[in-house]
Amino acid sequence: MSKNKPFKLDEINKKSPFKVPDNYFDDFAKNMQHQIEDEPHAIVIPFMTRIRPYLYVAASLLIIFSITFVALNTSEKEENVYAKKNSDSIITPSTQVASTSTVSDELVEDYYSLDDEELFNEVFDEEFDQI
């Protein structure tokens, strides 16, 4: 396309830029024949309507994954803060599992009802007592 000459439509390739899937027309004719034979008053379900249920499922899954991801991320961050504050006493995952398996439900509830500051104080006091 020259910048100086006025533009003329002939400059554009007239060949159709559109394509169809392989065997589209063969399949289309067969499909139409079935529709006419099976249901004399067939109705076409538009593409968007056909895929709408799948879109709903995909959207629901996305929401569930997002919530799970956010929840996991948040708890991981809390764990990191806790670990940082107690860098002197490193708790390995194996000791965590071992300890949680032996604690009672009441203790677990108490643990979750503490906020960060209370938790820190409690752990700090315990360690202090042990010295």
């Binding site: 027309f25 067939a42 076409v44 593409f47």
Partner: peptide, 27 residues
């Protein structure tokens, strides 16, 4: 089908939409 498809396709541009419109037209 081909003549009508290309006529429709040039108006709606997208293949899936053209397919729906062509089916509707024949029905």
């Amino acid at each position: 089908q081909q003549q009508l498809y290309w006529q429709i396709r040039k108006m709606v541009l997208n293949h899936d939409d053209a397919n729906d419109v062509l089916q509707n037209a024949f029905i």
